[in-house]
Structure formats: C-alpha cells, structure tokens
C-alpha cells in the first residue's frame, strides 16, 4: 500500500556491514551479545554448572578435545517445525505458573515443551507420559520464538533435553533469553533447512565447522557461526560466563 516508499539509506558507518537488502538481514544475530573481553579468554572447558538443574547434558554433546575453542558436537534426532513458531506454541501460557528457577518445576516445564503445536504436527515432540524429548535438535524456519518475552520458552526446550535449535532466523527476545540462560544454542542456518529435513532424521551439528550433517539424507549444510554468544551458552549462561571470565566475582 502506501508504505512502499521506503528510502533505504543504509549508512555503512552506522550499520554493520555487509547488509543485504533482503529479509535475511533480520537474521544478523550472532553479534547481539558481545562482552568487553575477547572470546579466546573463555576456557574451552568452561563450567557448565549453575543452570537450574545441572544434570541435563547438552544432547550427546561431545566436547571435542579441550584444545579447541568452543568445540562441541551435537548428535541425535531432529524435530522439524515451520515459520513463526511463537512462545505460546513452545510453552502455552497455562504452564507459566511453573517457576523455572525451582528445580522440580524446571523439570516439569520441560515436559510441556512444544505442547502448543497445532494438531497437524501429528508426531508430537514429547511422547505421552514422558518428561523428556527424544529429539535433541529442533530445525525451524523464520522468526523462531516470536511473541512473548517468557524465558520459560528456551528453558522448557533446554529442560526437555534439546541441545540446539537451528532456524533461519529468531525473534530477538528468544535469542537473547537462550544465550542469557545458556539453555539452548540458537543456531542459524544459511538456507531453509526446515524444507530439507524431516522429523526423525539423524543429524550432527559440528560447532567448530559451523556445519550440520543430515545422516538420513546424506546432505551437509552450512550454519552461521554463533560468534561470541557461543562461549556464553557453553558456560551455562550469562552469569556463569561472567564469573568464569572474571567479569563478576565468583560465588563462595
């Protein structure tokens, strides 16, 4: 309509470059959290402690040698969803009475992850009477996690056993909450993987290589590097990272 007259005056000084004029610009996320320390200071074997419940391993996360930077590999089944999966679908509002910082309620939140997906998702994310999902990796389209600012969303995914989400792009607050809590890696794909993969495919994510391998189809895909957010998630969230790097004092 009337709005078509956009004068797109990209100022190369004021905006990070390069910026394609397409929608993929919206996905320029990984720099969103930057700390005044170099990422190389982050110990590769960073503490994965202080999450609400520390028993949940990051998928079958294999720390690929303590010498590499943020080297993690996630391997497992993937669950595929479409565009604009909002926080009401990830964790419906009726479950928000659960307080994520309470360990037993954290576990319970996990058991409701993605329960809000419509009935046309015939394969459910969590089987009946199960607390955890068998899918370690979620593959999604555009704008994953849009809607509410509820931190219950990345927490529910993390608590259910998800290690990483691979989406075309994320809603801002979901991305931020994922990093701040260290619950899941919000990874971005170069292309539209939700059209390439099927629920139940066996996939591997190699963080060092920024690569996703679909073993079921035999195809490989490039991911965008997670950047400075990676060490924060690996440490177990923003507080754990800040402590491990000396930004804030360690707790007694």
């Amino acid at each position: 309509m009337a709005a078509a007259s956009c004068s797109l005056s990209y100022n190369s000084i004021l905006t990070p470059s390069p910026i394609p004029k397409t929608k993929t610009f919206l996905g320029v996320l990984p720099n969103s959290i930057k700390f005044p320390v170099t990422s190389s200071r982050a110990p590769a074997t960073a503490i994965r402690s202080s999450r609400a419940v520390s028993v949940v391993p990051r998928a079958t996360s294999v720390d690929s040698g303590s010498t590499s930077e943020a080297g993690s590999t996630f391997h497992g089944l993937c669950y595929v969803v479409g565009d604009n999966i909002d926080t009401d679908q990830i964790i419906p509002a009726e479950y928000l009475t659960l307080v994520p910082s309470k360990p037993d309620e954290y576990e319970k939140l996990g058991s409701y992850a993605l329960i809000g997906l419509p009935a046309n998702y015939t394969t459910r994310f969590i089987d009946q009477n199960e607390m955890k999902t068998k899918y370690k990796i979620i593959i999604a389209g555009d704008n994953f996690g849009c809607g509410s600012s509820r931190e219950h969303a990345p927490v529910a995914l993390g608590a259910s056993g998800v290690a990483a989400v691979v989406a075309e792009s994320y809603a801002r607050i979901f991305f931020r909450n994922s990093v701040a809590t260290g619950e899941v890696y919000p990874l971005e794909s170069e292309g539209r993987l939700c059209d390439e993969c099927n629920t139940g495919d066996v996939v591997t994510i190699e963080m060092d290589e920024s690569r996703l391998i679909n073993h079921t189809t035999g195809k490989e895909y490039k991911l965008k590097p997670i950047g400075d957010a990676g060490p924060v998630i690996q440490a177990g969230g923003i507080f754990a990272y800040a402590r491990s790097t000396g930004m804030i004092p360690a707790q007694n």
Partner: peptide, 16 residues
Amino acid sequence: IGNTDAGFVMGAGKLL
C-alpha cells in the same frame, strides 16, 4: 527482557 536479564538488573541496575 527475560528473567535472567531481569535478575541481573535487579542486582546491578544496568544491562548490556
């Protein structure tokens, strides 16, 4: 913002 950021602001009065 999310809970974790809010918890930070409660203590520090600022946020990145």
